[in-house]
Amino acid sequence: MKGLLLKDLYTMKGYAKQYVIVFVLMAGWAVFMKNMSFLVMYAIILGGMLVLSTLSLDEAVHFDRWSIATPAGARGMVREKYLLLLLAVAAGTAAGFLLNLVLVTLFGGMGSFEWEGLIITAVLFVIAYAVMLPVNFKLGVEKARYVYIGTVLGAAVILTGVLKMFEYSGRPLEKMTENPPVLMGVSACICVLALAVSYAISLKMVKCREW
C-alpha cells in the first residue's frame, strides 16, 4: 500500500504547480471577499479533487488492473485510495488553515470565520467521496465524477432542508453549534461510518469486477 501511495504522491507532484496557482488565486479571492472560511473550504475540496485526479490517471493507463496483479492486490489498491483521500482532505484543511493564519496576520481582521460551516463542508465532501469511490471501482472514473457532483448537490439540498426544518421548529442551528465537541463528534462519527461502509462496498466491487 505504501508503494501505491508513493506512486500517487509522485504523480500529484507533477501537477503541484497547477494546484498551487489555483490555491493562490483562491486565496486572493478569499481576501477580496473577506471570507477566510471559504479558503479552507476550497482547500478541502481541492484535496478531494486530487484523489479524483489520481483515479483518472490510474484508469487511463490501467494502473489499477496492474496493481491488483501485484502483491498489493485488490485490498491494497482500495485501501490506498481511502488513505489517500483522508490524507488529501487533512492536508487540504491544514494548508487552508495555515494560509488563513498567514493572511490574517498580514492583512489583519478578515471578517467572520465560520468553523461550523467548515465542518459541515468537510462532512459533505467526505460523504460525496464515500458514495463516489465504490461507483468508480464499479463503473469507472467518468461515471463516478457525475455521481460525485450529484451527491454534493443532493447532499447540499438535503442539508439546506434540514437547516430550514431546524429554523421552523424553533431550534436554530446555533443551538447545536453551542457545543462544538458534540458537533465535531457527530461529524466524525458520520465520516467514519460513511467511509467504512464505502470501503466495504468498494472492496466487493473490485473483487466482482472484470479488470
Partner: peptide, 10 residues
C-alpha cells in the same frame, strides 16, 4: 500487459 501501466507523470 499490452500497454505500459505506469502513470504518465511518473
Amino acid at each position: 500487459f499490452d500497454e505500459c501501466n505506469f502513470p504518465a507523470e511518473l
